Amino acid sequence: MTAIESFLAMLAAERGAAANTLAAYRRDLEGAEEAIGDLVSADRDAFASLGGAWAALAPASLARKCSALRQFCGFMVDEGWRGDDPSPALPRPRSRRPLPRLLSHAEVKALFVRAEEEAAGERREAVRLLTLLELLYGSGLRATELVSLPLSAVPRDAPLLTVTGKGGQQRMVPVSGAALAALSRWTALRGDGGKLLFPSTGKSGHLTRIRLFQLLRALAARAGIDAEKVSPHVLRHAFATHLLEGGADLRVLQTLLGHADIATTQIYTHVDAARLVALVNARHPLATREPLPSAAHEASAEP
């Protein structure tokens, strides 16, 4: 078994990587090997030369390839195949993948206030929209994951939703008390819609992503928010950003979002730098340590 095959086997066994993820890693690693030769024996300069070989790539593509190689380099060191880690020589992307427009806490609250007001009369469409909103922002689901949820995914004994994400990978995501209440109201109103949580008469059998997008934008307009700022994906980003702002761990966030690679999750580290500095100053064990006096201060203090 080659080094790349061993690495892919580890990803499948230990991390449960999906077939599409494994295929992407294979392409990136084999492409690097074509450019610089055997990755186990290639020196640091060879890894650095990939910057020229990949110069024409978009920043997002370059970041993905470098992430695959960094993980592979760590694997080689862990396996004892190399005594050094050449990954610091890899090129750095010029910029991170741009984030969509972000919603503030106040804007999210305005969306919920409007949705809750409209759902107060137990009108079927209004309760459905409130439930969709609760799951998008409260659990960070992708639009496709949300609209295609089977009825069996609704939690019974534990407040966890079973979600099938990209590559057919399943994960468990928490469901808030408010979302559980909305789900309960919706399941009582949905009627005999078969096995899908959000049934529709269309070809797919469930509410479409386009219709979800339209419903959210219309709600934003009624809530007095710029409709151009709101989409299912923006609400997923708001979920992640606001969790990170609240102190969530990046690895936990990776699991909740269903990201195969933590490099994808790291785009959320755009949160306010001042808040991060304040967090370090408040929580670091050495934050309260008195600074040692400088030599000049000691000299001036002598009698």
Rank of each mutant, 00 (worst) to 15 (best):
M1V: 06
T2W: 10
T2Y: 05
S6I: 00
S6P: 00
F7N: 11
L8D: 05
L11C: 14
L11P: 09
E14L: 10
R15T: 09
A17D: 08
A17C: 13
A18Y: 07
A18M: 04
A19S: 10
N20W: 04
N20Q: 14
T21P: 09
A23E: 03
R27A: 13
L29P: 03
L29S: 07
G31D: 07
A35L: 15
I36N: 07
G37F: 04
D38Y: 04
D38V: 00
S41C: 00
D43K: 11
R44P: 00
W54K: 06
A56N: 12
L57V: 10
P59R: 10
P59W: 07
R64K: 10
C66R: 14
C66W: 04
G74Q: 10
F75D: 06
V77P: 10
D78F: 06
G80Q: 08
G80V: 09
G83Q: 12
D85Q: 01
P86N: 02
L90P: 12
L90T: 08
P91T: 08
R96D: 11
L99V: 13
P100N: 06
R101A: 15
S104A: 14
H105M: 08
A106G: 10
A106S: 11
V108I: 13
L111I: 07
V113Y: 09
R114F: 01
E116D: 13
E117N: 09
E118N: 07
E118H: 05
A119T: 11
A120S: 14
G121R: 11
E122P: 00
E122H: 03
R123L: 08
R124E: 12
E125T: 09
A126L: 03
L129T: 05
T131N: 08
L136K: 05
Y137M: 13
G138D: 01
T144E: 14
T144K: 10
L149Q: 14
P155S: 13
D157P: 02
D157E: 15
P159A: 15
T162P: 00
T164W: 01
G168N: 11
G168T: 10
G168C: 09
Q170A: 11
M172T: 06
P174S: 15
P174N: 15
V175Q: 12
A181L: 14
A181N: 13
S184Y: 07
R185H: 12
T187S: 03
A188V: 01
D192K: 14
G193R: 03
G194F: 01
K195G: 12
L196F: 11
G202S: 11
K203D: 12
G205Y: 08
L207Y: 05
L215Q: 10
L216Y: 04
R217H: 02
A218Q: 12
L219H: 03
R222Y: 01
G224V: 05
D226A: 13
A227G: 05
P232Y: 02
P232M: 05
H233C: 02
H233Q: 07
H237Y: 04
T241G: 01
L243I: 01
L253T: 06
T255W: 00
T255P: 01
L257K: 03
L257D: 08
G258H: 03
G258E: 06
A263N: 08
Q266A: 00
Y268I: 03
Y268G: 01
H270W: 09
H270T: 08
V271L: 13
V271C: 04
D272A: 07
A273Q: 08
A274G: 10
A274R: 15
L279M: 11
V280W: 13
R283A: 13
E290F: 02
H297E: 15
E298Y: 07
E298R: 15
A299E: 15
